[in-house]
């Protein structure tokens, strides 16, 4: 990793975002295995560099749209761990008062316009957020996170083409984690780089190392600048790897079958985004080891507090079923 041009405080900021996501997701995985969380949970472990690097290149006014695997995007944009955890528990104090759950967390106050549970479903909405910025002469940009699976949806085609023809400030960030559920991405398309599809829409299509948070930051920063300057959309394909399951508890769906080799998983572990960034931070003396440990302990503590608060929170009142309806 050679990122000497990136300011140390930015590196530390990105490192903090990666670590917050990792510790949150590890705890969510534990809670799910203990049977404490209802519903489906899709963890972002192994992909943290993408959300952290990209969101560090944004301002609070910029907006993002997320996916079913959306916890990392909320945290990277500055989301509140307590309200997130409470939502995962289905509690009244959650971001969505228990009406959304893991796949539908939003925080409109920080420009997090929502996680969308339908693959590709958020892409047109992100185009609309970009349209809004263009319409109001704002220099806001809209970031659309989506996966390799979404790149095969019709909404991908329509959204990139629409954003390109209207020259909207939208940054399409494809998190290619190598699998659409259990099907290898390379089995679901006859090209090796989704980024190549940018050419089909007349927009730049860039491949980035999605395990390197600082590279993600650099690539995103350039795309953001281009979008703010009226240059239109960019497609960024972040090559990453889904460390864990498609959804926690996937063994139950697989009935003893496997779909990834031990070698593949071992190789992926050598490209762990947290460890890579930790090495960079340590080697460049960005923060002394003791302070890094303190930071980790603080984050771990804040996650534990979020869990406690969520457990202690009230369940939604049944009457709330009929709240948040037509304005």
């Amino acid at each position: 990793m050679h990122h000497q041009d990136i300011a140390l405080e930015v590196v530390l900021d990105i490192y903090t975002r990666v670590l917050r996501i990792r510790r949150f997701e590890e705890e969510v995985g534990r809670l799910f295995r203990q049977g404490q969380l209802p519903g489906f949970v899709h963890l972002y472990i192994g992909e943290e560099a993408v959300a952290a690097g990209v969101c560090a290149a944004l301002t609070d006014d910029d907006t993002i749209i997320s996916t079913h695997r959306g916890h990392g995007h909320v945290i990277a944009k500055g989301g509140d761990l307590n309200r997130m955890m409470a939502e995962l528990f289905g509690k009244a104090t959650g971001y969505c008062k228990g009406k959304g759950g893991s796949m539908h967390i939003a925080d409109f106050d920080i420009g997090m316009l929502g996680a969308i549970g339908i693959v590709g479903g958020g892409m047109p909405i992100a185009v609309g957020a970009g349209l809004s910025a263009w319409y109001t002469d704002s220099d806001r940009v809209s970031v659309c996170f989506f996966g390799d699976g979404a790149a095969n949806e019709g909404s991908f085609h329509e959204s990139l083409n629409l954003a390109s023809t209207l020259r909207l400030p939208v940054i399409f960030v494809c998190e290619n984690n190598q699998y659409g559920e259990f099907t290898p991405a390379l089995q679901a398309m006859n090209i090796s780089d989704i980024a190549d599809r940018g050419a089909g829409y007349g927009i730049p299509g860039l491949v980035a190392d999605g395990t390197d948070a600082l590279e993600m930051y650099r690539v995103a920063k350039a795309a953001v600048t281009r979008a703010r300057d009226g240059g239109g959309p960019t497609l960024i394909e972040a090559k990453t790897h889904r460390r864990g399951s498609h959804a926690e508890g996937e063994e139950a769906f697989l009935g003893g079958q496997t779909y990834r080799s031990d070698e593949e998983m071992a190789a992926a572990r050598t490209k762990d985004p947290l460890l890579l960034l930790h090495s960079y931070v340590s080697e460049n003396d960005i923060l002394p080891a003791a302070q890094l440990e303190t930071l980790d302990a603080e984050i771990t503590q804040s996650v534990a507090e979020a869990v406690d608060a969520a457990r202690d929170s009230p369940a939604p009142e049944i009457e709330s079923l009929f709240e948040d309806l037509w304005v």
Partner: peptide, 28 residues
Amino acid sequence: DRRVIDTPISELAVAGAGIGAAVTGLRP
């Protein structure tokens, strides 16, 4: 042009773009 916007024939994306614009303060 700004207030009467022609689009490609992309009903899904145009509908979603309307939603995205609506949740960010416009009235499409």
